[in-house]
């Protein structure tokens, strides 16, 4: 078992006709993911490399049985796209779009939670991959390998770095998930940790955090009380000067809240092995499995 996606996942790509959407959807399909449909209002009936395009997600689901949406639409339209996918009945919505206004994210999360049962991953995230089964998003599958370690991260590129460190010493992954670094992410560390704890394929967990917010501290509390599998963690931004906003809306330190040291302390107290350099992740996992 993997979590959230597997061989049976059927993906509808919102924004398949755009450059990024097309490039990554085709990579996902080449990997073996069932990319069954794309949407683009007004382009229903057309095809992109054999993938049928529909005007709406609802039409796409009716025709293809898609259950997961992968969203590449531009920031100004992302909220409506995600809500459309939720209303149409998608179980999982993976929103790659970067740069969505925080107010749109907050409303999107709120409405989705109130009106649907859909799970939202992202926005501003790399998506997720269950190696050997399915890749939904923009993660480079070449660096992954099927196995027993669950990986979860706020940062896209650091997810790749962590996965790479595992694969290079022949440790495979069950599912690798980027939850995104925006102010209002859909799924949190805790949601993913819960999945990994319940998943029979997952034996150990890698959790990558960064400065800003309190998601890592909340995750530490959850790990202490609910996670029995070994967890290795890395926190980026130890040397970042306070008060500077470094890219991710999430990565900002004000005062002593959300600092790397506060997060490392909370995780260490919860029994997590926090490594100081992302290249040490592989060895740390080897030590516990």
């Amino acid at each position: 078992m993997s979590i959230l996606i597997n061989e049976d996942t059927k993906v509808v790509v919102q924004g398949l006709t755009g450059e990024q959407g097309k490039f990554h959807a085709l990579r996902n399909r080449d990997y073996g993911t069932q990319v069954v449909a794309g949407t683009r209002p007004g382009k229903g009936g057309e095809k992109v490399e054999g993938i049928p395009i529909f005007n709406t997600v609802k039409d796409a689901i009716e025709a293809t049985g898609a259950n997961t949406a992968l969203t590449f639409v531009p920031p100004a339209f992302a909220k409506d796209a995600v809500l459309e996918a939720g209303d149409a009945g998608c179980d999982l919505i993976v929103c790659i779009t970067e740069g969505i206004p925080a107010k749109d994210e907050a409303k999107m999360y709120d409405l989705l939670k109130t009106n649907t049962n859909a799970k939202l991953l992202g926005p501003n995230c790399p998506g997720l991959i269950s190696p050997g089964k399915s890749n939904v998003g923009i993660m480079p599958h070449e660096i992954t390998q099927e196995g027993n370690v669950g990986v979860v991260s706020r940062s896209g590129t650091l997810t790749y770095q962590a996965v790479h460190e595992l694969t290079r010493i022949n440790i495979g992954q069950s599912t690798c998930i980027g939850i995104g670094g925006d102010p209002v992410p859909g799924m949190s560390f805790i949601d993913v940790l819960e999945g990994f704890q319940l998943d029979s394929q997952t034996e150990a967990i890698v959790m990558i955090g960064e400065i800003g917010g309190s998601a890592e501290e909340e995750a530490a509390e959850y790990i202490k009380n609910h996670v029995t599998k070994p967890v290795v963690s890395y926190i980026a931004g130890v040397t970042a000067p306070p008060g500077k906003k470094m890219g991710h809306a999430g990565a900002i330190v004000s005062g002593n809240k959300g600092t790397a040291s506060a997060k490392i302390e909370a995780l260490t107290k919860a029994g997590v092995n926090v490594v100081k350099n992302p290249t040490k992740i592989g060895q740390a996992i080897r030590d516990v499995i």
Binding site: S153, R154, T157, L158, A251
Partner: peptide
């Protein structure tokens, strides 16, 4: 670098 997380991590390393 690409991605805030990786760049921050690069500063640390």
């Amino acid at each position: 670098g690409n991605g805030a997380g990786l760049v921050m991590s690069t500063l640390d390393v």
